[in-house]
Design a binder for these strands. Structure first.
Length: 806
RNA sequence: GCACCAGUGGCGGAAUGGCAGACGCAGCAGACUCAAAAUCUGCCGGGAGCAAUCUCGUGAGGGUUCAACUCCCUCCUGGUGCACCA
């Protein structure tokens, strides 16, 4: 009898072997076929690993292990996205340098990951806070700066009152800080910006060439928010002024009954003298400015606004005079900050017009003519027909759009225009624990880049990491560091004291893994050529509009500059679901439903945790934790272990199990590729149930099972392999092959139905003729067909017989 | 409000036009045991029937089809993302 499986001993034993033999090292043999599997590198937080981490890591570990056995040169790396606020805040609170905090957290994370037996190539570990790494983050920034894609701008930024830091739009959730939940207010600051908007079209178009799950593509497209429309010029009455608006519905121009400009629109100040209700306008503008993002969202349902008394506009297509209003439902940051309002065919304009009693003119008719403009605007562009629109009458909306655009361009009163929701990326953080921005400001020369030879520009040692109340970075207090000579003219100048956001280091880390020690370049051309693009990148949906978009932007920029050779960084992107607590809620300390992976590894073993997280449910959906489910997976592994006592000799599959073996190899192989780990494991469970029923398994069958299971449960399967007398290892074996012909049984069980209701089954040869099967089915049905009139007989080979009878 | 995803036994889930509930958990029964645990074996959606069997059943309602968990329409519920983007 075999000993009971001892995961403590066995897992440590094999982890040591892997550490010493380094079988998972990616080689520099660039002649072999390559496979680059990537998982998002973690932020090494003080809490340690969460049970959510192993789900994606195990998934790609399985795929990586399988690919190695299939002969690929596999790159499956891991590293640390270690700059960031929590570390800095912890450092401030406990008076420990953030670099020390980071070092400790990384050590803990690494221990935990190694205890799970991942086949990462630890020789390629990267850390974004390592100067040898952030040297290249700074280098990329300088390239962006030199290409005109990094610029400084005075702008109202999202300011977190608690973190005392500027936030990107992406980091503000419902008007509060994504990290700490404190209110976010507007504050005008001079900030570094990256012109991601220059890449809007490339970021959309590139999606056609990659294999991302549809959800990710849709979300990125929506986030970039490309819209095609037109800019139209309206004359202001009795002035030479032109008020330009952006619209996606130029076809409805005849229905414009008023205009609205944003409260911040410069036109207002320019015509101050003409405006008769100036006090009212100023009061409204101040009220709008005071609203936080949160209030603006909350109040979205109720439209407010003030008519500008003294200004009016002329509709260029019919010369009608229409009033001009200000309202905060028009945003200065989108389009031209002004709109033409067509209340009949725009929901927001409709609400506004109803509230203020403005005229509503219908210019599009529904298919049945029934449009109730008392209740709501008619916004359907598919079925509408133009009316009350002069030369557009009778056209469809689509035709109308094109014809009016031609007209506008011909008469020089407007032109086609594409707009995006995407904004430039706010790249400054007033914080210590980030990459210093390598720029020097000189009063005479302006912003001067630090010479590339001086990179990395190291973070100076400071005593206090506390942010200042006036919004300056802690670095600003370091006068020795700040005051430098201008590299250009030699006069006294100052260093930039803002640091980069956490997204910087993660925007290119996948490139560094290909050649992590390189001193001359971010990675060698040869390494990049061979390894890029990443073949399979798995990560959380929450990174779709942040990290994933930012890193595609940087990569496309590096491609345009000739530093990388693939236009897209990731060939395939998949996403995993969250692991919820046992009660179906998100795991959190306050809910008291947190599971610590260390406890599971200690009590049941890493192989059990890995198997369980893969068996828990569909990979892309959220799943609730279950302690009983964990036990079930351990029971399965124990049953595999105990098959040792039932082994009989055999160099080939036994006759009775041959088909089942080929079927299982096929199912497991395919399911691993398609993220269907749960059904792959179910197939292996079915297989061992067969062995248990027979109370025997031949050696070849057992070895095959062990090989198939190895990517999921690598420790136990190596141990079994050794017990079976092998001196080599499972990871050196070839992935089992299946023979398609041998996955098909000679006879098949065909369901027999009358009028689609199943009555029983018949066994027939797999390639039996239709007549034979139908007759067998009729025999089986016997008296049940008596007195019935057969109308139709359907046979789907190998599947079903359906007799339609009355 | 808009978009996307999901809704199947007591529970996690399988089946994406062809025998609904694979596999696992929990439960029940048996074997082993002095006993318990562990392990092994069997049963395990509802209703009717001694039974063979019949019948209902995949959030609700309608439709397409010989056949619908699967496709189409309307609605309900939950989750996620976006949210005055003209």
């Amino acid at each position: 009898m075999s000993e009971m499986y001892n995961h403590h001993v066995v897992e440590k034993k094999w982890q040591k072997v892997w550490e010493e033999n380094k079988p998972f090292r990616a080689t520099t043999d660039y002649t072999k076929p390559k496979f680059y599997a990537l998982v998002e590198f973690p932020y090494p937080s003080g809490q340690g690993l969460h049970v959510g981490h192993p789900r994606p890591y195990t998934a790609l570990d399985i795929v990586s292990r399988k690919r190695r056995m299939q002969g690929y040169n596999v790159l499956f790396p891991m590293g640390w996205d270690a700059f960031g606020l929590p570390t800095e805040n912890y450092a401030i609170k406990n008076k420990i340098h953030p670099a020390v905090v980071t070092k400790n957290n990384v050590a803990r994370f690494k221990d935990q990951l190694q205890s799970l037996g991942y086949s990462f190539d630890w020789e390629r570990e990267v850390n974004t806070t390592d100067p040898d790494y952030y040297k290249w983050t700074q280098w990329i920034f300088l390239k962006l700066f030199k290409a005109g894609l990094a610029y400084k701008k005075e702008m109202p930024i999202n300011w977190c009152t608690s973190c005392k830091v500027g936030l990107a739009n992406e980091e503000v959730v419902n008007g509060v800080c994504e990290r700490c939940g404190s209110p976010v207010v507007r504050k005008v600051k001079s900030e570094w910006m990256l012109k991601i908007t220059d890449y809007a079209d490339k970021l959309i178009d590139g999606l056609d060439s990659v294999d991302y799950i549809e959800r990710v593509k849709t979300q990125q497209k929506n986030w970039i928010g490309r819209s095609e429309g037109a800019e139209v010029d309206f004359k202001l009455k009795d002035t030479d002024e032109i008020l330009t608006v952006y619209t996606t519905r130029p076809d409805t121009l005849f229905g414009a009954t008023y205009m609205v400009v944003s409260p911040e629109h410069p036109l207002i100040d320019k015509y101050k003298d003409r405006i008769k209700n100036w006090d009212e306008i100023i009061a409204y503008r101040e009220m709008a400015a005071r609203k936080s993002d949160f209030e603006r969202t909350e109040l979205a349902k109720d439209k407010t606004g003030v008519v500008i008394d003294g200004l009016s506009a002329i509709n260029p297509v019919n010369e009608k005079e229409i009033p001009v209003w200000i309202s905060d439902y028009v945003l200065m940051s989108y389009g031209t900050g002004a709109i033409m309002a067509v209340p009949a065919h725009d929901t927001r304009d409709f609400e506004f017009a109803k509230k203020f009693g403005l005229p509503i003119i219908q210019v599009v008719e529904g298919p049945d003519g029934q449009v109730d403009l008392d209740k709501e605007a008619f916004t359907d562009v598919q079925t509408g027909t133009m009316i009350n629109s002069g030369f557009l009458d009778g056209l469809s909306v689509e035709e109308g759009k094109e014809k009016i655009k031609d007209f506008l361009e011909e008469k020089k009163i407007g032109h086609r225009k594409v707009n995006y929701k995407l904004r430039d990326w706010v790249f400054s953080r007033q914080r210590y624990w980030g990459e210093p921005i390598p720029i020097i400001h000189c009063d005479d020369c302006g912003y001067v880049p630090v010479d590339e030879s001086e990179l990395p520009l190291l973070l100076p040692e400071v005593d206090s990491y506390l942010p200042t109340d006036n919004g300056e970075s802690p670095l600003a207090a370091m006068t020795d560091w700040v005051n430098v000579k201008c590299p250009c003219c030699g006069k006294p100048a100052k260093r930039e004291t803002d640091t980069m956001p956490q997204w910087a280091g993660s925007s290119w880390y996948f490139l560094r893994y290909t050649d992590p020690e390189n001193k001359e370049a971010l990675a060698s051309k040869e390494a990049l050529n061979y390894w890029m693009p990443v073949d399979w990148y798995n990560g959380g949906m929450e990174h779709t509009t942040l990290h994933l978009l930012y890193s595609r932007f940087w990569h496309k920029f590096l491609y345009d500059e000739g530093y990388v050779t693939s236009p897209e960084p990731y060939q395939k992107r998949t996403s995993h679901g969250m692991i919820l607590g046992e009660n179906g809620e998100k795991m959190s300390k306050s809910r008291g439903n947190v599971i610590n992976p260390d406890d599971i590894v200690r009590d049941y073993g890493a192989d059990t945790l890995r198997t369980y997280e893969m068996f828990i449910g569909a990979f892309d959906l959220a799943a609730s934790w279950s302690d009983d489910g964990v036990k079930g997976c351990r029971r399965f592994l124990d049953r595999v272990w105990k098959l040792q006592d039932m082994v009989v000799p055999g160099d080939e599959f036994s006759k009775e199990n041959e088909i089942k073996m080929h079927q299982t190899i096929k199912k497991v192989s395919n399911d691993f590729e398609n993220l269907k780990f749960n059904t792959a494991i179910a197939a292996m469970m079915e297989l061992i149930n067969v062995f248990y029923k027979d109370k025997k398994v031949n050696k070849k069958e057992y070895e095959t099972l062990v090989t198939l299971l190895n990517p999921v449960a690598p420790h136990m399967t190596e141990e079994i392999w050794e017990v079976l007398g092998h001196t080599d290892h499972v990871y050196e074996q070839s992935w089992p092959e299946f023979d398609e012909a041998k996955t098909i049984e000679a006879t098949v069980e065909v369901a027999v139905q009358i009028n689609g209701k199943t009555k029983g089954t018949v066994n027939v040869m797999k390639d039996a003729e239709k007549d034979v099967v139908i007759n067998a089915a009729k025999d089986m049905l016997g008296a049940r067909l008596d007195g019935k009139n057969i109308i139709k007989e359907i046979y789907v080979p190998g599947r079903i017989v359906n007799i339609v009878a009355k």
